[in-house]
Nucleic acid binder design. Structure first.
Length: 738
RNA sequence: GCACCCUUAGCUUAGUGGUAAAGCGUUACAUUGACAUUGUAAAGACCGUAGGUUCGAUCCCUACAGGGUGCACCA
């Protein structure tokens, strides 16, 4: 491109043109890099998969600028550098989005039916799923788009299903009925990492549970009082539990209670999980509607009575309350208890309610047939890999969060009752099960492994009855099950040989366990090696006053606004300038500083070009030329020494992911040491015959070296300048040797 | 509740066992300069509060307060 240096730097006119040149060059693809060193080393970065529903936000800008800095640096260093991009089908998020669209049209997915609905989601994906990729390109991301993958591409899907089969055949996947976290709005189970908590003012009701004491062993006690925030679930109570060490209740253990409203008789059991200090120290146990209670129920062989259905309404077991919403039932039950004199008191109480991370609806634990991945062994491997340092998580304090999760891991609920996603490779026999209704099949507790087969492809003939048309499980896999496979499922067979394992992944802390941990154990399980050496957890970008950026709250800031207005380089500058490891209180002033810096680079380059008599650059600068630079003056010596020092510092900072420090250091050097001091000094030196030509050489050298070092951070302006330094050159700064 | 992190100039943040830097903002002066986005200089911080360790602490320790995050959820 031909630049007009007489005007200020104009990112708008420059960026799209430069980006197109990069794309045309093919150098984002490492297979096209001219690699001289026979002992080539890889540098592979995995892009945190953006959801197809997503549009670029500040978090992406931070992730991807950091990754791009590394990728551009290592590419210039001569590594075979691959940045692997992809998009995630994001099961629940995408389904929710399309459902919302349908609701606006007055329709629902149930009216459409599964097949039509999925078609609709694909259409939606084709239309909007590429938006975020285009936005990443605007940011300057030098990912290898020729390798772009979607988690529901045919090949990827095959790997996902094969992984399921692998785990199943290894005995790590099992089907069972458990009380799981259930979102009544989305109509699906969720894993514990997909939950959020919200503080809510509620009540704690103290309810009298009448004691059955026919033998009159415990005089003066007619009731045990339990405290609960959810009286409506008492209809499903199957025990009252106390702590075995709680002296107040020792004599009650093993006795029986008559459950109010139902007159069902339930036992009093002892369990160490009960906190004697909370409420009255006696707890109602509802295995069907509380996960902890489900575990207590398991230990004491208690029945599980479901009283709330998957839509969050009271079911037939709730007797006269059947059909009511839980809140209605709660109110009615409290009134009834009060009228019967069984309500001891009501206290106001602030507690946390659990909500769905996608739609925000209150989570209802309910018993349900699900598929689980046994986690203990997988978690132990993932733990060991980080403990032994094979994978390094930075900043270090996040290792603790990683360890905590893996050390206290529960089995992973991997099935979801959604329509958008990878359907489980599980095939039910119609004849054996006696049904062709798939909904019936998933909820049927009586099915055993005799009733289905697990296989990637549909068996041509049913291996169970030999003549039925098998039914595929309607469940889909947790989105994170497929994204966990990204470091290898994102690569073709041959790429796996060349590019696995990779090196680096960078993301926000909220997906450390959701994604990073799962990539680590998946990589170990399927490839025998961890997928990368470095996990870098960057800070979260908050508003200036420290609030979470959120679209729904209207507190989000769109990085594209900055890219359009001030350019991608200024935006990247601002993001990295502020990214020191802590959370960032976003200050727009940094974007202005970035824009000014672009212009400074632009103008300093113009100066050097003009004072060098234009087109005197012989790019790329030869090493011999650089070595023969002979300082004549104190200023010469100083700038050359400083340049060498800054280069070393920059390398160190980039290699340790201290991008903010690297950038600030470079900024300081370029603006102050180079422009304010040396450039001013050079004016006199050039005029002097004795120092003229050496000064010009030093200017050229310092400029080119600066452009190289700045390129990973601000790729557009540096590339634009570089290409204008030598008219004869068709070199890319992007692939110039560091 | 447990654990971890943060609290430094008007704002956003660096940083160090020997009283502190940057960007933006403010003030003065200079400059048509490679720079409509410049330079030089100045003002501006008893480095959250209270103790302790130390010859000496903003930096280490303890407690507290405020903000945040992770985990557990207590029913």
């Amino acid at each position: 491109m031909n630049a007009d240096f007489s005007k200020p730097y104009d990112p708008k006119a420059t960026e799209s043109m430069i980006y197109q040149q990069w794309l045309d060059s093919g150098y984002f693809n490492p297979d096209n890099l001219k690699i001289k060193n026979p002992k080539i080393q890889n540098y592979v970065v995995y892009m945190p998969l953006p959801n197809v529903t997503g549009t670029l936000h500040m978090g992406h800008a931070l992730d991807n600028t950091g990754s791009d800095i590394l990728v551009r640096y290592y590419r210039m260093k001569g590594f075979r550098t691959l940045w692997l991009p992809g998009t995630d089908h994001a099961g629940i998020a995408t389904q929710y989005k399309v459902e919302k669209e349908l609701r606006k049209e007055g329709a629902s997915r149930f009216e459409l039916g599964r097949e039509k609905f999925i078609e609709r989601v694909w259409k939606w994906k084709e239309e909007y799923g590429g938006i975020i990729i285009d936005q990443l390109k605007k940011l300057g991301a030098s990912a290898d788009w020729s390798r772009l993958r979607f988690t529901m591409d045919p090949d990827y899907t095959k790997d996902v299903l094969s992984a399921f089969v692998h785990y199943y055949e290894k005995g790590l996947i099992y089907r069972g009925e458990r009380t799981v976290n259930w979102c009544p709005r989305c109509g699906t189970s969720l894993s514990e990492l997909e939950l959020e908590h919200q503080e809510e003012k509620g009540s704690l009701w103290y309810i009298k549970y009448p004691l059955i004491d026919t033998k009159h062993e415990i005089p003066n006690t007619k009731y045990i009082i339990v405290a609960t925030t959810r009286p409506e679930t008492m209809l499903g109570d199957t025990a009252v539990a106390v702590n075995p060490n709680d002296k107040r209740y020792a004599k009650f253990i093993g006795k029986t209670i008559r459950l109010p409203l139902t007159n069902r008789e339930i036992p009093i059991v002892a369990d160490l999980k009960i906190d004697p200090g909370f409420g009255t120290g006696a707890v109602k146990v509802t295995p069907a509607h509380d996960i902890l209670d489900f575990e207590i129920g398991g230990r004491h062989k208690l029945a599980s009575i479901q009283v709330i259905d998957e839509r969050g309404k009271m079911n037939a077991n709730a007797g006269s309350y059947a059909g009511m919403k839980t809140e209605e039932a709660r109110k009615a039950i409290v009134e009834r208890l009060a009228s019967e004199g069984l309500l001891e008191k009501e206290e106001s109480y602030v507690h946390n309610i659990t909500i769905c991370y996608r739609c925000g609806h209150v989570i209802e634990p309910i018993p349900s047939m699900q598929w689980f991945l046994q986690m203990d062994k997988l978690a132990a491997n993932a733990l060991k890999t980080v403990q032994s340092g094979k994978v390094d998580i930075q900043p270090e304090n996040f290792q603790k969060i990683y360890f905590d999760w893996l050390e206290n891991i529960r089995d992973w609920t991997i099935s979801r009752q959604l329509w958008w996603g990878h359907q489980l490779p599980v095939w039910f026999c119609k004849n054996q099960t006696g049904s062709s209704n798939s909904q019936f099949l998933i909820s049927n507790k009586n099915l055993s492994a005799e009733d289905f087969v697990v296989s990637v492809e549909k068996p041509a003939t049913c291996p169970i009855c030999k003549n039925c048309d098998m039914i595929k499980s309607p469940d889909v896999l947790d989105t994170w099950f497929s994204s966990a496979l990204w470091p290898f499922a994102g690569l073709s067979e041959s790429d796996r040989k060349n590019y696995y394992p990779g090196n680096f992944v960078s993301n926000a802390r909220d997906i450390l366990n959701l994604w990073d941990a799962r990539m680590i154990f998946s990589g170990l399980e399927f490839m025998g090696k961890p997928p990368f050496q470095n996990v870098f957890v960057h800070g979260t970008i908050l508003t200036k006053d420290g609030k979470r950026m959120s679209k729904s709250l209207g507190t989000g800031i769109d990085p594209l606004k900055y890219i359009d207005q001030y350019g991608a380089d200024a935006t990247r500058f601002a993001v990295i300038w502020q990214a020191n490891g802590q959370d960032i209180h976003w200050d727009e002033a940094a974007v202005m500083a970035g824009r000014k810096f672009c212009n400074k680079i632009w103008n300093a380059s113009r100066f050097v070009l003009e004072r060098s008599g234009n087109s005197k650059f012989d790019l790329p600068l030869q090493t011999e030329t650089q070595n023969s630079l002979t300082p004549q003056t104190e200023a010469d010596k100083k700038i050359l020494a400083k340049l060498a020092e800054v280069k070393k510092q920059t390398e160190r900072y980039i290699e340790t992911f201290e991008f903010a420090k690297a950038l600030q250091n470079l900024y300081d050097f370029f603006w102050h040491d180079f422009c304010d001091i040396y450039l001013e000094e050079s004016k006199g030196q050039i005029a002097d015959e004795k120092t003229g030509s050496s000064t010009q050489a030093i200017l050229r050298n310092a400029l080119v070296e600066s452009l190289k070092m700045l390129h990973p951070f601000m790729p557009f302006v540096t590339e634009a300048v570089y290409q204008n330094l030598d008219e004869r050159s068709n070199q890319f700064l992007m692939t110039t040797e560091w």
